[in-house]
Structures are given as structure tokens and as C-alpha cells.
Design a protein around this nucleic acid. Sequence first.
DNA 1: TTTTGTTTTGTTATCGCTAACGGTTGCGCT
DNA 2: AGCGCAACCGTTAGCGATAACAAAACAAAA
Lengths: 334, 334
Amino acid sequence: MIKKMLLKDVARLAGVSEMTASRALRGAPDVSNATRAKVEEIARAHGYVPNRIAGSLSSQSVNLVAVVVPSLNSFVFPEVLSGISSVLKQSPLKPVVGISGYEMDEEEEVIREMLSWRPSGLIVAGLEHSEATQKMLLQADCPVVEVMDADGTPLRHCVGISHLQAGRDMAAQILARGYRSIGFIGTKMPQDFRARKRFDGFVAGLAEQGVALTDLEHYAGDSAIATGRLLTAQMLARQPDLDCIYYSSDVMSVGGYMHCLAAGLSVPQDVALAGFNNLPILEGLPLQLATTDACRRPIGERAAEIVLKVRDSAADLPLIRETLSPRINLGQSL
Amino acid sequence: MIKKMLLKDVARLAGVSEMTASRALRGAPDVSNATRAKVEEIARAHGYVPNRIAGSLSSQSVNLVAVVVPSLNSFVFPEVLSGISSVLKQSPLKPVVGISGYEMDEEEEVIREMLSWRPSGLIVAGLEHSEATQKMLLQADCPVVEVMDADGTPLRHCVGISHLQAGRDMAAQILARGYRSIGFIGTKMPQDFRARKRFDGFVAGLAEQGVALTDLEHYAGDSAIATGRLLTAQMLARQPDLDCIYYSSDVMSVGGYMHCLAAGLSVPQDVALAGFNNLPILEGLPLQLATTDACRRPIGERAAEIVLKVRDSAADLPLIRETLSPRINLGQSL
DNA sequence: TTTTGTTTTGTTATCGCTAACGGTTGCGCT
DNA sequence: AGCGCAACCGTTAGCGATAACAAAACAAAA
């Protein structure tokens, strides 16, 4: 293998024109079966890999959908991803993932990079973006779907849930069960807007019934079981009378539960726990922890469907805005 | 915004040639500060997003590194990813992830797709590939690094650990602690070659000391705590005398531990447990479970370093093959 | 002023592939 | 034979940027 095989090499070896070879390899019509077979045979034999850069430049179309999420470590976005993939599989489009790291500047850079490849669609988590990003999303000449969140003003299409409402609903459930000395443990706010909204909704929900948070703890960095366990231990040490803790993530509530197991506290008798997301790690625990299902997979699926639909329709479709309803799973910890 | 802004539009508005505008925007030298400022200003004002497809075709270079992993759900690959990202951040290269789903055919397709974008490097998990894939990897005119595994013959560069040895080492540890009635719970073999190697190494390690597996269970699909719990329950029901279980993944061993917690079994007195990977979910549990650290982050870092190094050096470097040594963490469960 | 050297800017020719359209062939029909 | 229609296949002209080279502008040296 001296030099990279080009389409013209394949064409020459097959004794046809470049154009015919191109058509044959793309499965385009107007090629006889004999010719197609010959071209394919030669391409395969020589390990020809088409240059999609050239192809896309020429055809002005890219079979990629950009997906920008804050992180892959959290267990939550892979599931959105898998919803997206499963829907795109019915089309020639493929998802490409970019990581924003919960940073607006990073997000801006990643989105600029993604858009510079002229994808067929862009799916981005969240409604909060830098000004430059907003401009890019508005000007992008491909379908853009903001996902996960419905509290705010989407720039284009949107599929998500109301985190404000999710927090409020969980507050209602907790109050309804008689808990009154309530703590909250969540991510460092400026970074994760959706966690902040849940927090705000939660506090508002408590306030509506005249209850205030007894204690509050924020942490930086990724959510981790160990962090949840540690912060829970600390909070319970500070506030021995606490009867319930709401966490911004299931990963954290599992950590809290681990503390309880280790400290011999019974849940929910000694302390009630509730998390958010309905992550797979909740399944299999000795006790089913309360959580809110964040509709991750459906959100991914809908977003992908919107991309496909908007792309296929010539006319400008009206903007699609969908708010899914998260379901609370009370489990056995409340 | 009627039509997509092109470089020539920016150039026209700035009163310079396309070439100068191109240079200015890329930060290339040979542009006066005044001109550069003007071009940048206009580009920003109009939200110009360069077309990297055209740029890459012309410059014959793509600032992307393809990373192909079996799954993102497993908690193990995100960490490899993050090792890769952290190293690439010092360069203009960016990682792009493709998912092979533990399927060789899918992997072939994903790699073909990736290579068709002519990336600056390709990092792929595992040493086992379809014939067509092998051919592609050998012919690819960019650095190729196979990662995670060192048992076998790499096609090009390689950074990994010996899973065979890891299994063998864990067997030695388990035997050294006096366990003799040992079970194994692992993924469906044909899919996950590394899990199979650990299994083979484990069985061989036991055999060396005249011990045979007492029981064995395979499951299909993703590893999950719930699955680990269920299979553990079943296995212990079948084999009440079992004194130790080795799992192909920490996710599963955590499930096993959850069963023990729920069933009131004490670990390791009633049954000892050991997993693999040293995943973050192990941290924070009431009991530290035995595991083997799979060096995920270092592997990602080294792979990225190799890509950078090989790319920068004009000459053909000799192939780099590195076998990292996984460290067993005995924890408190053996 | 002329010359030389250094910046800065412009021109031309691709990069590898495909859209659009034009041409050829073969066949059935009148 | 002559015509029309399909089915194939080839030619031409880009896609939007950049490499490589050429030219112009400007400054310093002679």
C-alpha cells in the first residue's frame, strides 16, 4: 500500500468513469448490476475507504447529527444518547458526541467546532447558552433541538421536562408524608442549571406550605456515591433531627443510603431519602430509593425524531416544543 | 440571515482577499494586526462559522481523533475517554467517539465511517477485529492505537493490560486466602473478549493449584447492579457452600454485595466477593470490595500521547507496545 | 534616489468527490 | 428503417476552503 486509494483509482481498475464508480459505491441508481458488482469488488479488494470530506463538500450534505452534552460520567447522558442512536439508526444519520463539561465557554467552543462540520442536526442539552452560542444556534441551517429542560425560552425546537416542577412535586410528596426537617444536597449551582431549577422548585414547594430547608450542602465536581455518603454523614452530624434529605442526583442519594447502611440508620424511619433521575444504579439496592424519572431515553428519541422530521420536510416546520412529564417513583425510602 | 456566510463574504466585507481573510481567521502569520482585527470583527459580527469540510479537504488535515469503544453505559470507557481528552487538550486535536456495541460488524462499520473522515488518529478498544477492519487499521494513514488489551497481536501501536494475567492474579489472591469453592459470574463471552480472557486466566489460575470452578453463570446485555444481585442470589441458592464469587465487572460485584446486604449475609465471612475495573461506584460502599484497577485513565492518556507523538514525527516511528500493570485492590471483601 | 529586505496581500491551482446534464446504447414498436 | 423511451454511463463544473507561489507595499540601508 503505497498511496491512499482514490475513487479514480477504483474507477480506473474497474474500467469505468469516476462518476459511475461513485454511483456504484453509493448505491445510487443508473448503474447496471454487473458494473456495480465489479466496482464493489475492486473497492473491497483494495480496501478503498471513500473520502467523506470530499463527498460531503460536493454533495453539501453531512450524515452526522451533533449531540452536545455536559458529561458522560454521570450515567444520565449516555441514556439520552442511546435514545438518539436508536432513532437515528432508521436513517443514514449518525450521532457525534461533544462534551461541554458544564461550562458555557467550553460549550460554545464545542458547538462552534461541531457546526463547522455542517451537521444535519444539532441536539444540545440545556437552555442556557452564551450569547455567541445563542447566535450560532439561531443561525445554524440545520434543525436544532434543545433537550432535557423546559424551564425557559428555547431558541428553536425543544424537548424536556420542567425541573422546577420536578423539585416542587418532590417537595409536595415529602411534605405529604409528614417530613418537616428537610435537608438538600446538590451540585454547585452555577454549573448545573437544571439542578438549580430543581432546587428552586423544591424550596418553593416547601415554602408554599410554610416549611423552610433545615440544612443545605453544595459540592463541586462530579456526583459520586462517596461524595453523597460523606456529605450525608456530615449533614446528619450537624442536624441530628433531620428527617429527610433530597439530593440533586440518584448517585448522591445512593451515597446517602450507603451512609445509613454503614451507620446502622434505617431508611426511612431514621431518615428519608430522595434523589433524581431514576438511574439504573437504583435497581438492585436492598431498598428502593425514591426518585423522579427524568425521561432521558424518551427525550433522546423525540429529539432525534424531530431532527429527522424537520430535515425531511422541505418547508419550515413550526417550532416543536414538548414538555414531558416526569414520574415520581416513591420507592421505599420516603 | 438569508444565506450562509462564506469566507468570501467575510473577505468582501473586510475589503481583503479570501486568502487574507482565511489567514486572519486561522491565526496564521503574515497578516497585519489591523487587517486581522478587521476580519475577525466582521466574522464575529456576522456569526461566520468556517466550513471545516472545505478547509480540511484543502489542507488535507483533520483535527479529529477517532475513538471507538464498545459502550458508554459501562462506566469504564468514559474514563478512558477522559484520559484521552485531557492529553489532547494540549493540542489542536479533538476526540470523536464511536460506539461499536460489542459487535465486530458494528465496529467495522463505525471504523469505516470514522476513517472516511480521515482523522489524525484512531484509538480503538480491543485487539479482536473483523478481517476487513484489520485491513483498514493496517492501511489507515494515521496513527492507530489499540487499547485496553495486551493479550494478542496488536496491528499497530498498543497500550493495555493483560486480562489473562489479571484473572490469574485474582485467582492467586483468592486461593491464597483459602477459598476453594469458587463461582464466576460474567458477561456472555462471545461479546466481550477481555472478560473472556479474565475468565480464562482465572480458571487457569485456579487449575494451577488444582481447583476447579464450582459454579459459573453468564448473562447477556449490559452489566447492571440488579443483574449482579439476581445472579448472585441464584448462584448462592444453587451452591450454598460457595465461599467466593469472582465477577467480570465491579458493577456485578456490587450487585452481589447488595444481595448479601439484603439477605443478611456477611462479606467475606459468608461469601467473599471480587470484581474488576475499580469503578468509582465502589467508593462509598459500606464495605470496600476487592477489585483490579484496569488503568483506564492511564491507558487513555498514553494512547493519546502516542497519537500526538507519531503524528508530529515525520519519520515512521517503531511501533509502540505498552503493557501496564493492573493493581489488585483487596479491599475488605476477600 | 535606488536597492535590498521584510512584511503583507493577492492569484492560481488544487483537494476528492458528486450534481446536473449530455450522450450512448439497446430494445420494442409502428 | 425510423422513432421513442429506458437504462446506463461519461463530461463538466463546481463545493469552500487552503498551499504554494507571485506580487505589491513599506521600511531601512546604500
